[in-house]
Amino acid sequence: MGIVADVTNDGFILSSAPNFRDLGGHRTASGRTVRRGLVYRSDALHTIAAEELPVYNGLGIRQLVDLRTPHERETLPDITPEGAEYAAVAVQNPEAAGANFSLSLADPEKARSMFADGAAERFMHGVYRELVTDAEALTGYRDLVERVAKGPTALVFHCSAGKDRTGWGAALILGLLGVDRETVVADYLASNERQANTDKWMSRLAAHSGLEWEEVAPMTRVRAEYLRMSFDHIDEVYGSFDDYVSDGLKLSDAVVERLRERMLD
């Protein structure tokens, strides 16, 4: 029998992966509730501590969707839950400026040109625009939504920090389910209290790159303005969120309906 983790969105299911959390529990604008125990969002899953494996394996996860780049996946391979399918689903062009920024930080000269003197904030704005318009992102997020809609068992999706690529994936799914924008933003911002692992590796990268922590800080946390950048860019490019879903992601009405049937009480 699986272990049942009785937690809220405010709790830590896995302290070794602090941004691992249930996407369920939110109320929709129509008064329905997103079911718990079906979809989890997370930061990197190579960090799961041995003592937490029973909880991790006991959540009933049968599908792991890794949104990271090939370099990230190869460098830090996931610990996949017992009995789960592993799926690499790209949401970034590996050659794009927003991908593999850890490699850029490893080169002090490149790091300074890309991130110093306020450039890190502009870099993040660019990332959030790419996440809703780049071809890889459109294909990848469509794949993610279709997997969530299909089920039939629990799924976890993640990136490295679980806040940007995963943050947009969560915002997209909650938006499709009819969760209001304010709640979507609150779920997104909850990542800020769960970045202990990110701070460790970003501190090392910043020190190696010669940048001050303040210069890389915009990449270590989420801000409401980042998510707003994606939504505003959607309106500019597609006209509306609904048109982004149908014309950009090319998600069928049947898939969206199946997602809602599966995910809402």
Rank of each mutant, 00 (worst) to 15 (best):
I48V: 15
Y56W: 08
G37V: 14
A49D: 15
S16N: 01
R35V: 03
N19A: 09
H26L: 12
T33K: 13
F20L: 13
V39T: 05
E52W: 11
V39A: 04
T28V: 04
V39P: 02
H26Q: 11
A17T: 12
H46I: 06
Y40I: 06
D22H: 02
V39N: 03
E52L: 10
I48L: 15
L59H: 06
Y40C: 07
N57W: 05
V55M: 13
D22P: 00
L59F: 07
D22W: 00
D43N: 15
E51F: 15
L53K: 12
A29R: 15
V34K: 00
N19Q: 11
T33P: 09
L59W: 05
A29C: 04
D22C: 06
R35Y: 00
V34H: 00
S16E: 03
E52D: 13
G58R: 08
G58Q: 06
N19W: 08
E52I: 14
R41I: 01
S16H: 01
L38G: 07
G37I: 08
E52K: 12
G31K: 11
L53E: 09
F20A: 11
G58K: 06
D43M: 10
S42K: 00
D43P: 00
V55E: 07
N19Y: 11
S30W: 01
D22K: 02
N19L: 04
G58P: 07
L53D: 09
R27G: 06
L38F: 08
L38H: 05
Y40N: 04
S30T: 14
R27H: 09
I48T: 08
S42Q: 04
I48P: 00
R36N: 10
D43H: 03
E51T: 15
L38K: 13
H46C: 11
G31A: 05
V39Q: 00
V39D: 01
R36T: 14
F20K: 02
G25R: 04
E51R: 15
Y40V: 03
N57K: 00
A29Q: 13
R21F: 03
R36S: 14
V34M: 07
A29G: 14
A17W: 05
L53Y: 08
R35L: 05
L53S: 09
R21T: 04
V55G: 06
R36Q: 11
A44Q: 12
G58S: 10
I48S: 04
Y56E: 03
S42E: 07
L53P: 04
T47W: 10
P54L: 15
A17L: 06
G25H: 02
E51L: 13
E51H: 15
A49V: 10
N19S: 11
N57V: 06
N19T: 08
D22L: 01
G25I: 01
D22M: 03
R32C: 12
G58F: 10
S16R: 01
R32I: 11
D22S: 01
T47N: 10
T28W: 10
E51C: 13
G58E: 06
S30E: 15
R27A: 10
